[in-house]
Protein backbone atom coordinates (compact mmCIF):
# COMPACT_ATOMS: atom_id res chain seq x y z
CA UNK A 1 0.00 0.00 0.00
CA UNK A 2 1.46 3.35 -0.92
CA UNK A 3 1.96 6.35 1.27
CA UNK A 4 -1.22 8.11 0.23
CA UNK A 5 -2.86 6.25 3.04
CA UNK A 6 -2.07 6.43 6.67
CA UNK A 7 -0.86 9.96 7.30
CA UNK A 8 -3.96 11.19 8.99
CA UNK A 9 -4.69 8.09 10.96
CA UNK A 10 -1.43 7.84 12.80
CA UNK A 11 -1.65 11.31 14.24
CA UNK A 12 -3.51 10.31 17.35
CA UNK A 13 -1.98 6.86 17.62
CA UNK A 14 1.36 6.16 19.15
CA UNK A 15 3.81 3.66 17.78
CA UNK A 16 2.41 0.49 19.30
CA UNK A 17 -1.20 1.50 19.15
CA UNK A 18 -1.52 2.09 22.88
CA UNK A 19 -2.87 5.41 23.97
CA UNK A 20 -4.61 7.12 26.81
CA UNK A 21 -8.19 6.17 27.46
CA UNK A 22 -9.41 9.73 27.26
CA UNK A 23 -13.14 9.73 26.67
CA UNK A 24 -16.06 8.39 28.61
CA UNK A 25 -18.32 7.66 25.67
CA UNK A 26 -17.43 4.87 23.31
CA UNK A 27 -19.10 3.63 20.18
CA UNK A 28 -19.18 -0.16 20.09
CA UNK A 29 -17.59 -1.80 17.08
CA UNK A 30 -17.66 -5.10 15.30
CA UNK A 31 -15.11 -6.06 12.65
CA UNK A 32 -15.86 -8.68 10.03
CA UNK A 33 -13.78 -10.44 7.39
CA UNK A 34 -13.97 -13.84 5.69
CA UNK A 35 -12.19 -16.07 8.19
CA UNK A 36 -11.96 -13.89 11.30
CA UNK A 37 -8.19 -14.30 11.20
CA UNK A 38 -6.30 -11.54 9.51
CA UNK A 39 -8.12 -8.35 8.64
CA UNK A 40 -10.93 -8.42 11.18
CA UNK A 41 -8.49 -9.51 13.89
CA UNK A 42 -6.05 -6.74 13.04
CA UNK A 43 -8.98 -4.33 13.28
CA UNK A 44 -10.12 -5.98 16.51
CA UNK A 45 -6.69 -5.60 18.07
CA UNK A 46 -6.18 -2.01 16.97
CA UNK A 47 -9.63 -0.92 18.14
CA UNK A 48 -9.16 -2.69 21.45
CA UNK A 49 -5.79 -0.98 21.89
CA UNK A 50 -7.56 2.31 21.25
CA UNK A 51 -9.93 1.35 24.09
CA UNK A 52 -13.00 0.79 21.96
CA UNK A 53 -15.41 -2.01 22.79
CA UNK A 54 -15.04 -4.43 19.90
CA UNK A 55 -15.96 -7.93 18.78
CA UNK A 56 -15.14 -9.64 15.48
CA UNK A 57 -16.51 -12.27 13.12
CA UNK A 58 -15.97 -14.06 9.82
CA UNK A 59 -18.64 -14.56 7.16
CA UNK A 60 -17.09 -17.54 5.35
CA UNK A 61 -18.48 -21.02 5.60
CA UNK A 62 -15.23 -22.24 7.09
CA UNK A 63 -12.01 -20.80 8.39
CA UNK A 64 -9.52 -21.12 5.54
CA UNK A 65 -5.80 -20.58 5.89
CA UNK A 66 -3.11 -21.09 3.27
CA UNK A 67 -1.57 -24.56 3.21
CA UNK A 68 1.56 -26.07 1.67
CA UNK A 69 0.19 -25.53 -1.83
CA UNK A 70 -2.50 -23.31 -3.22
CA UNK A 71 -4.90 -26.24 -3.54
CA UNK A 72 -4.41 -27.56 -0.02
CA UNK A 73 -5.69 -24.88 2.34
CA UNK A 74 -5.93 -25.59 6.03
CA UNK A 75 -9.62 -25.62 6.83
CA UNK A 76 -11.22 -25.32 10.26
CA UNK A 77 -14.70 -24.96 11.65
CA UNK A 78 -15.88 -21.67 13.07
CA UNK A 79 -16.80 -21.43 16.75
CA UNK A 80 -15.29 -24.85 17.50
CA UNK A 81 -11.60 -24.30 16.86
CA UNK A 82 -9.42 -22.08 19.00
CA UNK A 83 -6.61 -19.95 17.63
CA UNK A 84 -4.33 -21.78 20.02
CA UNK A 85 -5.19 -25.21 18.63
CA UNK A 86 -4.71 -24.00 15.06
CA UNK A 87 -1.40 -22.51 16.10
CA UNK A 88 -0.23 -25.75 17.65
CA UNK A 89 -1.40 -27.81 14.70
CA UNK A 90 0.38 -25.70 12.11
CA UNK A 91 3.46 -25.46 14.28
CA UNK A 92 3.58 -29.25 14.39
CA UNK A 93 2.94 -29.61 10.64
CA UNK A 94 5.60 -27.37 9.18
CA UNK A 95 6.96 -24.67 11.48
CA UNK A 96 9.31 -23.29 8.84
CA UNK A 97 6.62 -22.78 6.20
CA UNK A 98 4.04 -21.32 8.53
CA UNK A 99 6.55 -19.04 10.16
CA UNK A 100 7.78 -17.86 6.78
CA UNK A 101 4.31 -17.00 5.52
CA UNK A 102 3.40 -15.24 8.71
CA UNK A 103 0.57 -17.56 9.79
CA UNK A 104 2.07 -18.54 13.14
CA UNK A 105 2.80 -14.95 13.92
CA UNK A 106 -0.80 -14.02 13.13
CA UNK A 107 -2.29 -16.92 15.11
CA UNK A 108 -0.02 -16.11 18.03
CA UNK A 109 -1.42 -12.60 18.01
CA UNK A 110 -5.00 -13.80 17.65
CA UNK A 111 -4.87 -16.22 20.56
CA UNK A 112 -4.01 -13.30 22.80
CA UNK A 113 -7.06 -11.40 21.58
CA UNK A 114 -9.81 -13.97 21.97
CA UNK A 115 -10.46 -17.71 22.06
CA UNK A 116 -11.26 -18.53 18.48
CA UNK A 117 -12.78 -17.46 15.16
CA UNK A 118 -16.54 -16.79 15.29
CA UNK A 119 -18.96 -16.93 12.39
CA UNK A 120 -21.19 -13.94 11.76
CA UNK A 121 -24.18 -15.97 10.62
CA UNK A 122 -24.10 -18.06 13.80
CA UNK A 123 -23.87 -15.08 16.10
CA UNK A 124 -26.97 -14.34 18.11
CA UNK A 125 -27.07 -10.57 18.27
CA UNK A 126 -27.83 -9.29 21.72
CA UNK A 127 -26.76 -12.43 23.53
CA UNK A 128 -24.87 -11.11 26.58
CA UNK A 129 -21.11 -11.52 26.26
CA UNK A 130 -20.20 -11.64 29.91
CA UNK A 131 -18.27 -14.90 29.93
CA UNK A 132 -15.49 -13.79 27.60
CA UNK A 133 -13.35 -12.46 30.42
CA UNK A 134 -10.02 -12.53 28.60
CA UNK A 135 -11.19 -11.11 25.28
CA UNK A 136 -9.62 -7.86 24.27
CA UNK A 137 -12.15 -5.11 23.66
CA UNK A 138 -14.83 -6.87 25.72
CA UNK A 139 -15.39 -3.92 28.09
CA UNK A 140 -18.51 -2.07 26.97
CA UNK A 141 -19.84 -4.84 24.77
CA UNK A 142 -21.37 -6.96 27.50
CA UNK A 143 -24.77 -6.37 25.93
CA UNK A 144 -23.56 -7.99 22.71
CA UNK A 145 -24.88 -5.27 20.38
CA UNK A 146 -22.41 -3.08 18.47
CA UNK A 147 -23.25 0.33 17.00
CA UNK A 148 -20.99 0.02 13.97
CA UNK A 149 -20.10 -3.03 11.91
CA UNK A 150 -16.97 -2.68 9.80
CA UNK A 151 -16.43 -5.31 7.13
CA UNK A 152 -13.13 -5.69 5.32
CA UNK A 153 -14.34 -6.88 1.93
CA UNK A 154 -17.33 -6.16 -0.31
CA UNK A 155 -18.34 -9.80 -0.22
CA UNK A 156 -18.46 -9.76 3.58
CA UNK A 157 -20.49 -6.56 3.57
CA UNK A 158 -22.96 -8.20 1.20
CA UNK A 159 -23.10 -11.26 3.46
CA UNK A 160 -23.69 -9.14 6.54
CA UNK A 161 -26.38 -6.94 4.96
CA UNK A 162 -28.11 -9.96 3.46
CA UNK A 163 -27.96 -11.81 6.75
CA UNK A 164 -29.48 -8.85 8.57
CA UNK A 165 -32.29 -8.72 6.01
CA UNK A 166 -32.81 -12.39 6.57
CA UNK A 167 -32.92 -12.13 10.34
CA UNK A 168 -35.79 -9.69 10.02
CA UNK A 169 -34.46 -7.06 12.45
CA UNK A 170 -35.98 -8.48 15.65
CA UNK A 171 -34.06 -6.16 18.02
CA UNK A 172 -35.22 -2.87 16.47
CA UNK A 173 -31.70 -1.54 16.86
CA UNK A 174 -30.18 0.48 14.03
CA UNK A 175 -26.61 -0.32 13.02
CA UNK A 176 -24.26 1.31 10.57
CA UNK A 177 -22.66 -1.29 8.33
CA UNK A 178 -19.51 0.00 6.67
CA UNK A 179 -17.26 -1.83 4.27
CA UNK A 180 -13.61 -1.01 3.82
CA UNK A 181 -11.92 -2.96 1.03
CA UNK A 182 -8.71 -4.36 2.47
CA UNK A 183 -6.56 -6.90 0.63
CA UNK A 184 -6.09 -10.13 2.50
CA UNK A 185 -2.42 -10.00 3.39
CA UNK A 186 -0.57 -8.99 6.51
CA UNK A 187 0.76 -5.72 5.21
CA UNK A 188 -2.54 -4.43 3.87
CA UNK A 189 -4.33 -5.65 6.98
CA UNK A 190 -2.00 -3.54 9.06
CA UNK A 191 -2.63 -0.46 6.94
CA UNK A 192 -6.33 -1.28 7.06
CA UNK A 193 -6.13 -1.51 10.85
CA UNK A 194 -4.85 2.06 11.04
CA UNK A 195 -7.59 3.18 8.69
CA UNK A 196 -10.22 1.47 10.84
CA UNK A 197 -8.96 3.19 13.98
CA UNK A 198 -8.96 6.51 12.13
CA UNK A 199 -12.56 5.94 11.08
CA UNK A 200 -13.53 4.84 14.59
CA UNK A 201 -12.01 7.99 16.05
CA UNK A 202 -13.83 10.20 13.57
CA UNK A 203 -17.14 8.47 14.17
CA UNK A 204 -16.72 8.51 17.93
CA UNK A 205 -15.97 12.21 17.87
CA UNK A 206 -19.22 12.85 16.00
CA UNK A 207 -21.15 10.63 18.40
CA UNK A 208 -19.66 12.38 21.42
CA UNK A 209 -20.62 15.78 20.05
CA UNK A 210 -24.18 14.55 19.76
CA UNK A 211 -24.11 13.24 23.33
CA UNK A 212 -22.77 16.52 24.69
CA UNK A 213 -25.73 18.42 23.37
CA UNK A 214 -28.40 18.05 25.92
CA UNK A 215 -32.12 18.56 25.84
CA UNK A 216 -34.52 20.04 23.41
CA UNK A 217 -31.96 22.19 21.65
CA UNK A 218 -31.42 19.41 19.19
CA UNK A 219 -35.09 19.23 18.50
CA UNK A 220 -35.40 22.90 17.71
CA UNK A 221 -32.21 23.35 15.78
CA UNK A 222 -33.48 21.53 12.74
CA UNK A 223 -31.02 20.95 9.98
CA UNK A 224 -27.99 23.05 10.83
CA UNK A 225 -24.99 21.02 9.74
CA UNK A 226 -23.02 21.17 12.94
CA UNK A 227 -26.08 20.28 14.93
CA UNK A 228 -26.86 17.23 12.84
CA UNK A 229 -27.23 13.95 14.66
CA UNK A 230 -24.61 11.27 14.71
CA UNK A 231 -26.59 8.99 12.39
CA UNK A 232 -26.87 11.75 9.81
CA UNK A 233 -23.21 12.59 10.03
CA UNK A 234 -21.94 9.05 9.37
CA UNK A 235 -21.92 9.42 5.55
CA UNK A 236 -20.22 12.77 5.83
CA UNK A 237 -17.58 11.42 8.22
CA UNK A 238 -17.05 8.45 5.94
CA UNK A 239 -16.71 10.75 2.92
CA UNK A 240 -14.04 12.78 4.69
CA UNK A 241 -12.30 9.61 5.79
CA UNK A 242 -12.38 8.34 2.21
CA UNK A 243 -10.46 11.43 1.12
CA UNK A 244 -7.75 10.53 3.59
CA UNK A 245 -7.72 6.87 2.58
CA UNK A 246 -8.41 6.93 -1.16
CA UNK A 247 -7.10 3.40 -1.71
CA UNK A 248 -9.56 1.74 0.64
CA UNK A 249 -12.94 2.09 -1.09
CA UNK A 250 -15.78 2.26 1.38
CA UNK A 251 -19.49 1.43 1.32
CA UNK A 252 -22.09 2.25 3.93
CA UNK A 253 -25.65 1.50 4.78
CA UNK A 254 -27.91 1.78 7.79
CA UNK A 255 -29.40 -1.54 8.71
CA UNK A 256 -31.15 -3.14 11.65
CA UNK A 257 -30.32 -5.79 14.19
Amino acid sequence: MDTANGDAGSASTTQNGQREDDSNFKLRFCTVCASNQNRSMEGHLRLAQAHYPVISFGTGSLVRLPGPTITQPNVYKFNETSYDSIYRELDAKDPRLYRANGLLNMLGRNRDIKWGPERWQDWQVGLPRVKNETDQGRVGLEGGVPDIVITCEERCWDAVVDDLLNRGSPLNRSVHVINIDIKDNHQDASVGGSAIVDLADSLNRAAMEERERVGSAVFDAGGAGSRASFDERVPEVLGEWQERWPNLPATWTLSWF
Binding site: G60, S61, R64, A100, G102, N105, Q121, D158, N185, H186
Partner: peptide, 27 residues
Amino acid sequence: AVINAATAPLGVEEDDDDDYEPDLTPA
Protein backbone atom coordinates in the same frame (compact mmCIF):
# COMPACT_ATOMS: atom_id res chain seq x y z
CA ALA B 1 12.99 -14.48 0.96
CA VAL B 2 11.03 -17.07 -0.94
CA ILE B 3 7.72 -15.76 0.31
CA ASN B 4 7.24 -12.18 1.21
CA ALA B 5 5.24 -12.77 4.35
CA ALA B 6 3.96 -9.24 4.41
CA THR B 7 2.37 -9.21 1.01
CA ALA B 8 1.58 -12.82 0.28
CA PRO B 9 -2.15 -13.25 -0.19
CA LEU B 10 -3.47 -14.75 2.97
CA GLY B 11 -7.10 -15.68 2.79
CA VAL B 12 -7.71 -18.41 0.37
CA GLU B 13 -10.43 -17.32 -1.96
CA GLU B 14 -13.76 -18.95 -1.43
CA ASP B 15 -16.11 -19.60 -4.22
CA ASP B 16 -19.21 -20.14 -2.23
CA ASP B 17 -21.76 -17.51 -2.91
CA ASP B 18 -23.13 -15.13 -0.37
CA ASP B 19 -25.31 -17.89 0.94
CA TYR B 20 -22.45 -19.34 2.89
CA GLU B 21 -24.05 -22.71 3.30
CA PRO B 22 -21.59 -24.58 5.49
CA ASP B 23 -20.45 -27.28 3.15
CA LEU B 24 -17.43 -29.40 3.79
CA THR B 25 -16.02 -29.57 0.32
CA PRO B 26 -12.36 -29.29 1.11
CA ALA B 27 -10.89 -26.79 -1.28
